[in-house]
Amino acid sequence: MKLITHNMLTSNIIKGVKNGFPLKIIASKVEEKEVDFNPEFTARMIPKIDWQALRQAAADLGKPNSLPEAVADQYEENVDFLKQTHHVLMELEVIEGELVCPESGRKFPVSNGIPNMLLKEDEV
């Protein structure tokens, strides 16, 4: 699970959970895989990203200082900033671990890089 995916995931499908976002990550295995850097793509993704959730996710993976506090002004031309963002969004991958619902504490396992968001009958 790349952080670009994590940035969209919510546990609001659980009965009684309102936002369920962002899910806290408890990772036991994280991999870094090089992905071709495409500045245009990254720049286009930034408006769709929840920045604070992405920063928190990076911190959960033990990389608290990999992103600035806020999206840079005129980020389209800021190659360093785009590279940092690209790295966190696309190159960090949670292989094994858990995602925790911020409201209910329900844990969702991540195995082989795929988060399992299935619920039991009594949770819906």
């Binding site: 699970m1 995931l9 609001n12 499908i13 976002f21 795929i114 968001m117 299935l118 619920l119």
Partner: peptide, 16 residues
């Protein structure tokens, strides 16, 4: 990107 989940309970926010 892959997620194990249910099409009747999609773990994504509205309008995303």
């Amino acid at each position: 990107h892959l997620i194990q989940g249910d099409a009747t309970r999609v773990p994504l926010p509205d309008g995303c």
